[in-house]
Write a protein that binds this DNA or RNA. Sequence first.
DNA 1: CGGCTAGTTGACTTCATTCAACGCTGGTGG
DNA 2: CCACCAGCGTTGAATGAAGTCAACTAGCCG
Lengths: 255, 255
Amino acid sequence: MCKCQPYLPKVQAGVPSDVTAIPKETAQSKDMEVLRSMPLFSSLSQETFDKLADSVRFDRYVKGDTIVRQGEKAQWVIVVLEGYIKLTRTAANGEETLIHIFGRGETIAESVAVLGDNHTTTAEATGPTRIVRMPAHVVAQAARDAPELALAILSESSAKIWALMDEIEALKAQTADQRVLRFLLSLCPPNATNVEARLPYTKGVIAASLGLKQETLSRSFARLKIVGVEIDGRKVLVQDARVLEQEIERLNRFV
Amino acid sequence: MCKCQPYLPKVQAGVPSDVTAIPKETAQSKDMEVLRSMPLFSSLSQETFDKLADSVRFDRYVKGDTIVRQGEKAQWVIVVLEGYIKLTRTAANGEETLIHIFGRGETIAESVAVLGDNHTTTAEATGPTRIVRMPAHVVAQAARDAPELALAILSESSAKIWALMDEIEALKAQTADQRVLRFLLSLCPPNATNVEARLPYTKGVIAASLGLKQETLSRSFARLKIVGVEIDGRKVLVQDARVLEQEIERLNRFV
DNA sequence: CGGCTAGTTGACTTCATTCAACGCTGGTGG
DNA sequence: CCACCAGCGTTGAATGAAGTCAACTAGCCG
C-alpha cells in the first residue's frame, strides 16, 4: 500500500468533520445511557461517572479522518460509540501498518492519557464513526480519586493485552485461510447456521487487520466457498459456523 | 516444534525447584533494594512498598520450569529478578506459540492478578531464573488503597501494550532478516561499534520469539555476516550498530 | 461522460518452511 | 576411558504459501 507519500490528513487530528451536525442535547441524553452501560463506565459509582460525564464531548467522523496522531501528546480518552477505528503505526520509511481495530464500546488511549504519555499509534476512522472524548487530565485526576476508575481502566488495558496476544498468536501460528475463517467466525453467533452478516469495514482494511494483502484475502474468500462461505460485496453468508471451526482444525493438521 | 505431546511439566506450576538453595535473609535484604528500584515499585510511597514487601516471596527456577499455567486463576503477581521467562499459548491442538519474553524488572500477570482473572498464557523459564512473587489479593487490596500502585500497574500494562504492538508491527511489516537485525540491535547500545554481546536465550527460543523457525534464524545469521555480524555459539559480535540500522532500511526499499 | 476507488483474477516470483541428513558438545554408564 | 546418546544447531534440496505486478471490472461521484 502506498508508501512514502507525504502525510496529508484530510482534517486536522482531533478536529471532527461536523460536530454540529446533530443537536447536542438530544444526542447526549441518549448517548449518556449508552455510555453508562459500557465496560469502562459500568462499574463506576454514580458520583465518579457524573464527574466524568460533565466534561465529555461527542464527535463524529467520516472515513479517513485522523482522530489521534502518532507522536502527539495524549489529550483525550476516547470511547467508540459507533463505527470502527483503525490503529496504525507509520515507520520511518512511511510504511503504514495496521495494528488493531476498535469497535463500539472500546476505549482508545485510556492508559496513555492517564499516564500523560504520547500516542504510539495513529487512529483513523474506517467509515462513519461516532465517539465520545474526555480530557485526559480529568480522567487522570478521577482515577487518582476513585480507585474503581483506575481499576476499570486497568481492566480495559488488560483486555487489550489479550486481544493483541490473540493477534500475535494468529500471525505466528495460523495460515491466511485460518485467520480469515477466524475473522468470519467472529461475525457469527456461536454454532449458528445460515448466518447472514455484513463485513464491518472494507476488504482492504480486513486484509490489513489479518496481516494479508488484499489480493490474498480475495483469493482466500474464493477458496472458502467450498466450506459454505459466500461473499457478495459487503454481504456475508455462512452456511454453518461449526463447519468453519472444523475447517480451522483441519488446516492445522497439515501445518 | 513437537506438537500434540501430552503436557508433562517437570515441576508443578508455582512450585520452585529449590527455594531453599540460598539463605533467605541475605537474599532478601539485597533483593529488596533491587525491587525498590524497579519500575513497578519505584513510584510507590514507602508505606505502600512496605505493605507489599511484607508478603513477597523469592523463588528460583531452572530451564523448562512452568511458573504460571494458562487457564489457572492468577494467584500471584510476579516480577523477574534474573533470567528470562517466555509466555506461550497452547492451542486446542497442542501447538505452542511463543507470545512474548520477559526479562529483568518486568512484571507478569499484574493486571490479571489484580482483576482476579485467569491466566491466558503459560509462563516458563528459559534458563536459570529468579523471581519475586506477591499474593494477588494483597496487591489487589493495595491497589484499591493506594492509587499510585494502581497507576504503576497501569503503567506496566501500558508498556506491555506497546511491546506487543511492536511485535505485531514487526510480524506484519518486516522480513525475517529485518526482525533478526532489530533483535540484534536490541542487544547493542545505540550507535555503538565493535559490540560484544551474548544471546540471552537459546536460538530456538529467539527464533520463536521472532516468529521464525530455527532453521530460518540460522540462515539469517549466516546471511548477516556481510553486514558485520558474527555469531559463535551464544557470543555475538557486531561491528557497527548503525550499519545494522541502515540494512533494515535498505531491505525496506525492496519490499 | 471521465476519472476514482475497491475489488478480482492470472502469471510469476520470492521468502520462509519442511524434511532430512549431519556436526558438535556435554553428560552418563559400561 | 571410550561409546553412546540427547539436545542444540547447521546445511542442502524441494515445496509451498503469500506477495508482487499487471490487467481488468464494477460501482460511484462530480
